[in-house]
Amino acid sequence: MSMIGELIRSLFKKRATVLYPEERGKVHLPEGFRGKLEYYEDKCIGCSLCFQVCPSFAIEMVPEDKSRFPKNQTGRRPIFNIARCTYCGQCEDICPTKAIHLTNQFEVIALDKRDLMVK
């Protein structure tokens, strides 16, 4: 019975939860949230450090045409499989040129597996 005052006060408070997905706009994500990643190929130097630290083997190194991006001198670049990604953010942390950025996009759904590749 000692919580009865709290109970009555809570009746007039606003709801603590968000009716997702109808009220999608009310979902507030902080700065630095770890969501779907973005890759900037013009910054990439092809060092493959992200490939080495990825715990879930979501990153694959593929051959790259050296003439397209002057910074990339190794002739290799990563491609990312979001379906395997665990959003740990180790690739973002270790990237020396900030070519990888984790956005605040958390709804990652696709009907085709190929749509979940970030190239």
Binding site: L29, P30, E31, G32, F33, R34, T86, Y87, C88, G89, Q90, D93, L102
Partner: peptide
């Protein structure tokens, strides 16, 4: 919410890294 703001994730925080913090 504070854990999410500090570390970037609610549950699997992975804040402590080898050599310091994230």
């Amino acid at each position: 919410d504070m854990l999410e703001a500090i570390t970037g994730n609610r549950v699997t925080t992975e804040y402590s890294q080898i050599g310091g913090v994230r």
